[in-house]
Design a protein around this nucleic acid. Structure first.
Length: 236
DNA sequence: GCATTAATTGGTC
DNA sequence: GACCAATTAATGC
């Protein structure tokens, strides 16, 4: 795929906010200022404390966004796939990133500098509107997550995390993303051992199946019914 | 195949 | 329910 010309016109991500506006004359000059980044699996491309350089959109691949604790423990804030935005919290606000972003697959990222974004947002009200909606939803998700952390049991948190991953990346035979048990734990807010125990319990109950590291949800209805009591209506 | 890394299990606080 | 240690399974080279 490196041979092919990488530009917004050839981009398959219909739901990318930038991609949506490529027919707008106002957008055209900015599209040329896009940077393409090839990031291989496991590389950090945003580091906590580093100066904000801009915004990234995922063209291809998958990433995780996390905060690092003092004892080396990380809290994964969210995962991202094609079409999604990474680094938006740094934009406009502070000078330094407060999160870490790392690829979990070989990825292609589209970068726009702060300066380009600023001018593009001023020129394209509908893009600005989309961004505003996005920020609002993000805040909602974030608030919901706080509540979950406080009120859910470990088992529920793990189930919630699995459902989130399923929603985000989908599942064929198995979930379409390869996450370690540790990464699931870092997202759910518990430990690797607890995740393993919950998974093995769910397996015995016939709600999940595994093959090596691969995971699959086999009874979506029952699984989601377990956290239905928390009745959240958002994809958090 | 072997060496490395991840998953799992059991036990302690 | 987290942390630690020992064992077992999976994967990379």
């Amino acid at each position: 795929m490196p041979d092919k010309e990488i530009d917004c016109y050839s981009c398959p991500n219909q739901d990318c906010m930038i991609r949506k506006h490529i027919r707008d004359d106002q957008a055209i000059p900015f599209l040329a200022k896009r940077n393409t980044l090839y990031v291989r699996k496991g590389q950090s491309f945003i580091m906590e404390g580093a100066p904000v350089h801009g915004l990234y959109f995922i063209r291809d691949g998958k990433v995780k966004v996390a905060k690092i604790g003092i004892n080396g423990k990380e809290q994964i804030v969210r995962f991202g796939g094609p079409g999604e935005i990474i680094g938006h919290r740094g934009f406009g606000a502070g000078q330094f990133y407060q999160i870490n972003a790392e690829t979990i697959e070989n990825s292609i990222l589209c970068g726009f500098s702060n300066d380009v974004m600023k001018h593009m947002l001023q020129a394209l009200p509908s893009l600005t509107y989309d961004m505003m909606i996005f920020y609002a939803e993000e805040l909602n998700r974030s608030e919901t997550k706080v509540k979950k952390f406080a009120q859910m049991t470990v088992r529920e948190k793990v189930i919630d995390a699995l459902l989130y991953v399923h929603r985000k990346f989908g599942q064929d035979e198995y979930l379409n993303v390869q996450l370690s048990r540790k990464e699931i734990a870092d997202f759910a807010g518990t430990t690797e051992e607890q995740v393993i125990r919950v998974i093995s319990g769910l397996k015995k109950e016939g709600l999940l199946k595994t093959k090596g590291r691969m995971l699959a949800i086999t009874d979506m209805k029952l699984l989601s019914s377990e956290i239905a009591v928390h009745n959240y209506f958002l994809n958090s």
